[in-house]
Design a binder for these strands. Structure first.
Length: 350
DNA sequence: CGTTTTTGACCGGCGC
DNA sequence: GCGCCGGTCAAAAACG
């Protein structure tokens, strides 16, 4: 879960983005339709042919609205719990710090510890001492962005969450490192099979550093590194699914230690990833500016604060909605989910 | 000219 | 010890 969410009071945005009173559902469809350019291949757009179908869709929307509300409630609950836990944790940390916990964290520079020195051909690994002070609390923005990523069916987040654990104990080190790999998550994105670029838009800037054809998949796998922050440990592998060529599987390793890159100054609606090769080279073009800047907000009095937070909340919701509707992966996931449900609920077509 | 992508070579882990 | 394989490096090419 994201510390960010809980620490973001304005982020209690109710996921019930407009669902509500019955008729609004139709309006929602009308609103969403032009925006969410559903991937054509997924299901043919049927312009409301039959009334029963419309009714069914409406019902479905309502149902999903209810579901959505439930989920948002759950999310709120989880966030609350998280907050409690976090405060407990910080208490513990401060307590131990006061107890002279100067050296309790091994800080074996994560990898530096007992990693074989010959990791690289170049001896530049020697200079790893001063530069990369791994920021203690990695900003979980990535995770937040991954929320839309997990199309339940396929998502397989192998959370080795305890990344970079202490491996001072010597021999079990190897195993520990295996189990405590950096956080890994997978993202399944629907992509046009004719589009050969292994580009997954996730709002970050990536630089490709390698490509390989693997044994189990004829499609090449591309390796990316976060290019926004040189010290960012996150890596990404992108490869087309062996079974379904239209699906890109992006495997993320680690967490960004920085916020999301700022949105491009203009013309935000373009496709952009930073790792794009399709339209030449978008040098600085993060796609999804989901991230509210996490700055210290000025202290306001009651009314002001309320108004401000309301405003922020709205902006945030709008931003997120925009981001999501722009994000092809989200669209794909949405479409998959919707079509699945629709098929599920309409046995008449059988 | 600076940055990113391409691509062949290299390296280490793992199984036999 | 050997070969296979996935991951990474780094020089060269490409691009704006």
């Amino acid at each position: 879960m994201d510390p960010w969410i809980s620490s973001q009071p304005s982020l209690s945005l109710d996921l019930r983005v407009g669902l509500p009173p019955a008729s609004a559902a139709v309006a929602a469809v009308a609103m969403v339709k032009p925006k969410v350019l559903v991937e054509e291949d997924f299901f043919h757009q049927q312009p409301l042919k039959k009334d029963p179908e419309v009714a069914a869709l409406e019902a479905e929307l309502k149902r999903m609205g209810a579901e959505n509300r439930q989920l948002s409630e759950m999310l709120a609950a989880v966030a609350a719990k998280y907050e409690a836990l976090q405060s407990q944790f910080s208490d513990m940390v401060t307590a131990s710090a006061n107890n002279g916990g100067g050296g309790n964290i091994p800080s074996s520079t994560s990898e530096g510890g007992s990693v074989s020195p010959s990791r690289k051909r170049k001896s530049e690994s020697l200079d790893d001492s001063p530069t990369p002070p791994p920021p203690p609390p990695p900003h979980p923005h990535a995770a937040a962005h991954h929320m839309h990523v997990m199309p339940g069916a396929a998502a397989a987040a192998a959370g080795g969450y305890a990344d970079q654990t202490e491996c001072t104990s010597g021999e079990p080190c190897k195993r520990i490192r295996e189990e405590c790999k950096p956080k890994i998550s997978k993202l399944y994105v629907h992509a046009d099979p004719s589009d050969l670029s292994l580009v997954v838009k996730d709002g970050y800037q990536w630089r490709k550093y390698g490509q390989k054809v693997t044994k189990d998949n004829p499609c090449p796998r591309a390796y990316f590194r976060c290019s926004f922050a040189p010290a960012c440990p996150v890596k990404k592998k992108v490869q087309r699914s062996a079974e379904d060529n239209t699906i890109l599987v992006a495997t993320y390793e680690g967490e960004h230690n920085h916020g999301q890159p700022p949105p491009p100054p203009q013309s935000a609606a373009q496709n952009s990833d930073g790792s794009g090769k399709s339209a030449g080279k978008p040098p600085h073009a993060p796609a999804a500016p989901v991230v509210p800047h996490r700055q210290h907000e000025p202290v306001l009095n009651g009314e002001q604060a309320a108004a401000a937070s309301e405003l922020i909340r709205r902006n945030l919701a709008e931003q997120m909605a925009m981001t999501l509707t722009r994000d092809p992966s989200f669209k794909a996931a949405l479409v998959t989910a919707l079509s699945g449900r629709i098929l599920e609920l309409s046995p008449t077509k059988d």
